[in-house]
Structure formats: structure tokens, C-alpha cells
Design a protein around this nucleic acid. Structure first.
Lengths: 181, 181
DNA sequence: TTCGTTATATATCAATCCGATATATACTAT
DNA sequence: ATAGTATATATCGGATTGATATATAACGAA
């Protein structure tokens, strides 16, 4: 999903600044399945504005650039509704963690353990974020996505916690397997 | 993980052409946690060659461009071993499916059902691919990653199969929720 | 045997995205 | 009072994507 469509989608939920949209990707429900940085968000908002899919209201601020609040237009809502009817593409997963673990034979045991601990913490934080959401007032879609995320993160977390010892301690018991340091 | 590092990693497993590397990303164990297209692979191999991290042997072929077989060098192995010791970055997940479901209230019921069916098939294929791997001879890392993937895909699949009816059929029972077509 | 499809190969490039950087005060906690 | 974080705008160089180009070999179905 391109950044313009994602920003449009976010704006169907309410007006926002570029900074707020970024924050929603970092901290909100979107963090589990999409992302974009300022380098993509601001240009995307600019194009959406140019295309008449959003309007932009500027509010003066002291000591800061003018706040630019974007609102989706009727045309923008139609464009979004149309874009979302396209069949979704396949999920895209990039995991440095899994890539690193795939080559764990090249790493010292404590780096493997550290990577596992960090990933366990990463999944735990995300799971707690999902569980901590107050879903009252949410539609069926966001509830479904939240619960789906919980199921997947819980499975990942359970697997890592359960199997970490065998991978890390098993290596410690095999000195010939310890990568040179 | 940048494409150069990923290609180096692949070449630690054996010599390969750019086309074969792409195939390993599409069909092999790497498909579950990394990816790169020809637009990145060929330039990456060119740079690795220029940097002396790989060598390239060209074999004539009839009716096709010369086959270019890349081999990692000793320097390349060292570079890879060094790169992989860097702490892995956070996983990056882009799911058009989850994004679409988040806004399911804007979609007709049959498009929601179709998206769910397609995603169920996607997870099923991937799980079957992992289960069908002959892991004899594999190291601890690849085995761990394979089993991790199985756990996560199985959880995702179970959730979708179990909860699809409530999301799809529940909508059919609420005509006022049916998006205009 | 023929034909259609898929596989095998190399590569480039325009568009998009990322992550770093720039600028600078407001706000909050100690 | 000070240090750290938050709030805001934005750009840009480098990397990546996905489409495109080129073209035969191999395979399978009819």
C-alpha cells in the first residue's frame, strides 16, 4: 500500500498533522502492519493536497513552524474507498532477527542470547500494547486486526520463550560450535 | 538488513547466479523473513564484486546472456561475519491485508471474504512449505527459524479460520453496514 | 509434432521510500 | 535551572521497488 493511500486512510479517522500521522504509525494500531517516515509522509500530504484529496489549514505557532492540519475531502474519501477495493498485495516481512538467527552458527553465544532477549522484549511490548487497547467504540475491522495481532504475537512470544534455552544453552554445551571471538 | 549483506549471506551457503539468488528469496527459506528483486540484487552483486567480497565466473550460454556465477571470497566471509554481529534492527511488517481489514467497514462483504480467503491460502501455502522442508543436515539456526515460522503461521491461520465467519457473516446480518456498491 | 507456458538469464530505470539531517522552541521532570 | 523529550516543519542522498527490455531453452499438454 503506497504512502498516499495509507495517509488518506488515516485521515478518514480524523484530521491530523504530518507529525501526528507519523506518531500514529509509531505508537498506534497501525504500527503492527504499516509504517512510513517523515521523508514519505510530508511529500505524500503535499501531493494529496495538490490533487484535492485533502485540504490543509495552517495555524500559527510561536517558536515553531505553522501547524498544518490536514482534512480529507469528499473526493479523498471516494479515492480511498476505491483504492481499498483493489486486492491487497502479499504481506511483506523483513526480519533482521530471523535473518541473524538463520546464521547463528557464525555468532558467539551471548550475541545469540542478546538477540533473542531483545526480540522477546519486542514481541512482549507489542502484545501488551494490543492487550492494553480500549476497544470500546471500535469497529469490527480494528477489533479483528487487534485480536489477530494478539494471536500472532502470543504465538511468537511463546515459541521464543520456550525454545530459547535449547538454542542458547545447547550451544554452550558444544564448545566446538562457539564462534571465534 | 541491506541487500548486499543479504546476498553475501546467501553466498556463504554456496555459489549462485543473480537469478538463483532471486529464486532463493522467492521459493526458499529466506522468503519468510527477507526479500529483494532484480533491481537490487544485480547492483548489489556488482558492488560486492567491485569491493572484492565476491568473485564472478562467466559461463557462455547459447541464446542467453553469459551466466554469471558469484562466489564469496575470504574477505567477503569476514565482512559478512562482522555485519551479522551488529544488533538486528526491529522487524518490519507491511500487511496490505491487515490494512484493508482495518477499513473493512468501507468494503462490500464479498471483498472482505475474498481478502480473508486469499490470506488464509497465503498462510496455508507458507506453512506447508515450512512443514515440507527436509531439515536433515540443517544447522540449529535454520531449524529454529523454520519451527518459529511454523508456530507463527499456524497461529495466524488458526485465528483467521476460526474468526472469519464472525467477521463475514456478522456483516451479512447487518444490512445497514453493507457498503454501497 | 506443435504450441503455449514457464523457466532461465542478463540488465536498467523512473518512481518511491528511508533514514539522516536541519531548524528551533515548548514542555516536563528532576 | 537544567536536561531530556515532545512538537512541528521540511529536504535530500542513497537504496529499493516494480516494471520493463531482451531472448532463447525447456517443458508439458493437446
Amino acid at each position: 500500500m503506497d504512502v498516499r493511500t495509507v495517509c488518506l486512510g488515516v485521515l478518514t479517522l480524523g484530521d491530523a498533522t504530518g507529525y501526528q500521522i507519523r506518531k500514529m504509525f509509531e505508537d498506534g494500531p497501525f504500527q503492527h502492519f504499516t509504517d512510513a517516515g517523515f521523508g514519505s509522509i510530508y511529500p505524500a500530504l503535499g501531493r494529496l493536497h495538490k490533487e484535492g484529496l485533502v485540504t490543509c489549514e495552517q495555524q500559527s505557532q510561536s517558536g515553531r513552524p505553522d501547524k498544518k492540519i490536514y482534512s480529507i475531502t469528499g473526493t479523498g474519501r471516494q479515492a480511498f474507498a476505491k483504492a481499498i477495493r483493489n486486492a491487497p498485495g502479499p504481506d511483506k516481512i523483513r526480519s533482521d532477527f530471523l535473518f541473524t538467527l538463520f546464521f547463528e552458527h557464525l555468532l558467539p553465544q551471548q550475541l545469540v542470547a542478546a538477540a533473542l532477549d531483545e526480540q522477546i522484549a519486542w514481541y512482549r511490548a507489542r502484545l501488551e500494547h494490543l492487550r492494553g487497547c480500549d476497544r470500546s467504540g471500535w469497529g469490527d475491522g480494528p477489533v479483528f486486526v487487534n485480536r489477530f495481532g494478539q494471536a500472532v504475537y502470543a504465538a511468537a512470544l511463546a515459541f521464543l520463550e520456550q525454545n530459547k534455552p535449547a538454542l542458547v544453552d545447547g550451544r554452550a554445551k558444544r564448545p566446538e560450535r562457539q564462534a571465534a571471538e
